[in-house]
Design a protein around this nucleic acid. Sequence first.
DNA 1: GAGTGGTCTAGACCACGAG
DNA 2: TCGTGGTCTAGACCACTCA
Lengths: 247, 247
Amino acid sequence: MIGPVSSRRDAIAGDLRSQIATGRIKAGERLPSEPVLASRYSVSLPTLRSALAVLQGEGLIEKVHGRGNFVRRPLRRITYLGGARRPDADTPAGPAMRVIIQAVKTRARGQLATLMNVPSRSPLTEFICLAHEGEAPHSLARIYVPRDLTPAAVPEESTSRFGALVELGNTRPPLAEVQERVKVRLPTREEASILRLGSAWAVLAITRVITDTAGRVVEAAFLVFPGDHADAVFTTRHQSDDRGMEE
Amino acid sequence: MIGPVSSRRDAIAGDLRSQIATGRIKAGERLPSEPVLASRYSVSLPTLRSALAVLQGEGLIEKVHGRGNFVRRPLRRITYLGGARRPDADTPAGPAMRVIIQAVKTRARGQLATLMNVPSRSPLTEFICLAHEGEAPHSLARIYVPRDLTPAAVPEESTSRFGALVELGNTRPPLAEVQERVKVRLPTREEASILRLGSAWAVLAITRVITDTAGRVVEAAFLVFPGDHADAVFTTRHQSDDRGMEE
DNA sequence: GAGTGGTCTAGACCACGAG
DNA sequence: TCGTGGTCTAGACCACTCA
């Protein structure tokens, strides 16, 4: 580390962190105001605030302008199951997932056309999805499907499990290949506010491309999960020895 | 946004960001000193520093105590291939990967024993791996293999591709299943310094468990990649309709 | 209007790196 | 030793929330 072994900022952050961990300050509770904390720790306001910024960066507190600083409730861990497997046994006994879906007619262009391996201006349907789990925002998705493969009736708002999302691109067997690219990146301003993330907290971004047996891309999806409490799990099974080298 | 539409901090950060993007300030170059920049933008030093903190958070600059602030060179993107596939065609024509491996005899305990489904105190070999790609740190790994499956001779330092790492757990066919859990988390102090990440930059952490056809865990690995320039790709192939529901 | 956090200032002192 | 960034202070003013 730099500077003294433990700066006042780190000392204060550490003290508050342990108070939160031990439950001396409970989840959802408001911290004392910044001036009060500053005088309690005998530091100036900017120093105290920088300590709070550390905790905010760790996702332990949430700063709300005009109201105060709050201890964040521990969030239910989100597990994304890769390979387009149906997420049924996933997060059992959780609060119901609510998915808001908006369907828009659009056309392929630029990177998206390349990703889907279709000519520019090919007709697509874009599904913009926002999933909530109880009160907590769960995930964002932008899913693109060739127009001719789009189901005629699309529910505007479905109160279902996340499976609804997957099924949009999953009702047409047989699928040949699912490729998922996982990235870590900072959220856009919009993503940060929707997913209730500090703008310094990275998101887990998954680009999913599903191809059918004919080699046609039947879905491209951009999924965004709050990186502070989301995992993605991928399981690969090998029959005898099918470790393919073709790509 | 909070406060004014664009704070001085954001305005300065934006200006410097565009100067970096357009190449007016080149990669690797040192920025003018903080007092100089502060007076150039007519702000106080703390304000200017907070603008630099924004750019640091975005991975655009690197602050080096006592030397100055430097524009980070764009880093070669790292691609991790999931499913224990041999990463041969991976990052072609890159600088040679150098992997430093340290092997330690240890015993399973706690979470690790659970993950590997072995009794506590089972003998294991722990491989601590640090990969470099040219000068840039590439990844960290802690790999655990049951002692009786450990190759007799382990190179202390191998100048090879990352494949060396995978092959440690890959020389004993037939593998039945590879499960990879991808997480986003803040680096530990040690990881941040080794991977040369700001401690606010998240890492891509992969927990990999490889099982053989008998259901025995032959490898558990904890892999850490710098989140600012690492992807993980997982490809799932479906033969006819083998979307299994067992789990 | 009262209380909260957000931004900013001007200046001090300390720690690190290089000559 | 000198110039760099790192930490900290005491206080000002603004913006947001809620009664």
